[in-house]
Design a binder for these strands. Structure first.
Length: 227
DNA sequence: AGCCAGGCTACCG
DNA sequence: CGGTAGCATGGC
């Protein structure tokens, strides 16, 4: 008996196809996507850019993040040293489209300090969570899309969909939702493919939610997920 | 005009 | 613990 969580994944993939997240300015394709290729990021600098994007995208659309990352790139600030060379006022101006620019500027500086101190090592989840501005979703996004670690990303869309389908309680804790997803997928997906599936599944949730979970009534096309 | 967007921190009871 | 105000711009 196949787990409903895996069945939903298959249906989403059938409906929307591979998404090719995380959007990276350095990866070719529309919007920095790389559909069908899973070798991004390919350098320390690109891992750093995933971290910047993960912070900037908090409660904002990625189109705004894309503008900010492009502006940072023009200032040679997509590297740790380049970003630290920016004055706070300059940094705030460059990331202004993403909103919360006072907070996010501080978060970016703190993440950059943290990243430099890694000296190329892969951070633990706990270490990431110790950085001000990095919560559970942001930490898991950096680990999954930056470092290719098998950490499923839970976001507001994911909780909304799973709650609507009756698979979790409303107001379920992040850790419980993550355990549901990973527990179901570990039983169905070989370890070697887990990262790719986690990456695609989260992106597919977002694709579906953008269409049917942004305004009420939610889930009007959930036949797509269950058929 | 008002609601929503790929959250997090600080602070409240 | 669990719940929530504040943070801020841009798009529809």
């Amino acid at each position: 008996m196949m787990h409903p969580v895996y069945r939903i994944y298959e249906q989403l993939m059938r409906e929307y196809g591979p998404q090719g997240w995380w959007p990276l300015s350095s990866c070719e394709g529309e919007g920095g996507y790389h559909r069908g290729r899973y070798d991004c990021p390919r350098s320390e600098e690109e891992v750093f850019e995933v971290g910047l994007g993960a912070i900037l995208t908090q409660n904002t659309t990625f189109s705004s993040v894309h503008k900010a990352l492009a502006s940072l790139g023009q200032q040679q600030a997509l590297t740790p040293q380049g970003l630290l060379a920016l004055s706070p006022e300059t940094l705030k101006t460059l990331i202004r489209p993403c909103g919360y620019f006072n907070q996010k500027a501080e978060y970016l500086y703190r993440f950059t300090d943290f990243f430099i101190q890694l000296h190329g090592d892969v951070p633990s989840r706990e270490a990431l969570l110790s950085v001000k501005g990095i919560g559970e979703e942001t930490a898991d996004s950096i680990l999954l899309y930056g470092y290719k670690k098998s950490e499923f990303v839970i976001d507001a869309y994911t909780e909304r969909i799973l709650s609507h389908l009756g698979l979790i309680e409303e107001n379920a804790r992040y850790g419980k939702v993550k355990a549901l997803m990973q527990g179901a997928l570990e039983a169905e997906v070989d370890a070697g493919e887990r990262v790719t599936v986690y990456q695609e599944y989260h992106a597919l949730f977002v694709a579906h939610a953008k269409r049917f979970y942004s305004k009420k009534p939610y889930g009007e096309r959930d036949d797509i997920l269950i058929a």
